[in-house]
Amino acid sequence: MANNILVSIIWQLFWCSILFPIIHFGISLVREVTPKIGHDERLFPRDILYNTDLLNKHRVKIADELYRGFKKIKPSPASVEVRVVASNRGNDFLYQTVIFLLEQQASSYPSFNYTMQICNVESETFSDLKRFDKMEIPISTLGDQSKNAKFLNSTLKKENDDYWKCMALTTDSRYILLIEDDAVVIPEFSNLLKSLVRKLDDHEYVDFVKLYHPNYLRKLPSYALMGAVSISLSFFSCYAIKSFFKTFPILTFLILSLVVFYDFTTYGCRLSADFRYYLTGSAYFSYPESCCTPAVIFRKSSVKTMYEYFSRSVAFEGHAKDHILDESPFTGRQSDVNYVTHIGSFSSIRQRAVFLSDLRDN
């Protein structure tokens, strides 16, 4: 009896050693042929990816070329109004954010269009904003001279107040997309946004969708999908070899599920998102994870109630506007891929450098 059990275990382990390399090769092949929609080699070339200053100059040069060839798009009704939350942080971040948004707008017009506006959260017009005079982009100044922030808590409070004021501005569009001024849109931005609008039209209970979450922090939604795929691959692999066993090889199935899941995690959270998008051409969203507001889309019909709630909120260290949004009673979702790349290598809130992990996660 003991010998039979030992032989069965060895036999099942043997089949694990046969099946896993096959599955691993299949996964690596899928990763190789599936384009990474979140990475833009033109704006983030790999040979200078670790040189933040050179990378920034490279993007500014491209933005300058686009700026010189800029052609104004005729105003037309749009489902989405994009609002850039702008502060005087320098480094041409705002310039890049706006220019690459305009490039995406031009690439999708007239089949899909969005209007644009800039929310100036300073008390007066700063020099970077004047660069957009040629483009005739509406600018709303929300800053208050009496609220100049000198300490972390007061800075977080001002940032929180300004953000919700920008959200609450009137619009004729059905959705309002807030983008912070250090976020550059990805190459598939317009296509994803168009698909997302259709999905939101079908899910009227969703009040907002977060369109950015650091890849290294993506856990539950992506892990759940990886787990489901790992179990499915392992089950069908074991089903294919069950004729070599008297019963279903449960040990092979369990071990294979675990090692395949681990193999998936080594490719990061984006493999499943990239594959799903190129298979269907559709945007997807799931339950949100806590953190981050570089890009959030809000349903206009929910904005009045949301502003009444958020205008009473108080931000402080450890409880910034992203925490306030996460803890709110409104129904939120999170996109399965980042619609923007965060380029702000210096935090104006905490006055220190930050690690741009997403740039190295492609």
Rank of each mutant, 00 (worst) to 15 (best):
V206M: 13
L258S: 15
I255D: 03
A240I: 08
S232G: 13
H213A: 08
V303Y: 01
M226Q: 14
D274Y: 11
I255L: 14
F189A: 02
I231A: 13
A283G: 02
S282W: 09
F261Y: 14
T265P: 06
C291A: 10
S195W: 01
T266Y: 09
F235D: 09
V260A: 11
I186C: 06
I231P: 01
S234R: 00
L225S: 13
F298P: 04
E188V: 09
L192A: 01
V260T: 12
F261C: 09
D274N: 12
Y278E: 02
F208M: 05
S302M: 10
L200I: 03
I255K: 05
A224N: 07
L220W: 12
L258Y: 14
T266L: 10
V296F: 00
V303K: 00
E204L: 09
L251N: 03
Y223T: 15
V229D: 07
P288Q: 08
E204T: 12
A228V: 09
P214R: 08
T266K: 10
F244C: 13
D207M: 07
A228S: 13
V229L: 11
I250A: 05
D201F: 12
Y205A: 11
Y212V: 06
L211Q: 04
C269P: 07
D201C: 05
I250F: 08
L225D: 08
L200E: 04
I255V: 12
T247G: 08
I186R: 05
L251W: 06
A228Q: 09
T305E: 15
L217H: 10
Y223F: 15
V296I: 01
F235I: 02
D207K: 06
D274L: 03
C291V: 03
L251R: 04
C269I: 12
V197K: 11
G268F: 00
E204M: 07
S230N: 04
G281S: 03
R218G: 07
V206P: 08
P249F: 07
S232T: 15
Y216C: 06
K210P: 01
A295Y: 02
V303T: 04
R270F: 15
L217G: 07
I241G: 04
K210C: 07
Y205P: 00
S290D: 02
K194N: 09
F208G: 00
L233K: 05
S237P: 01
V229G: 04
F244I: 08
E204I: 11
K199F: 13
V303N: 02
S301C: 15
P187Q: 02
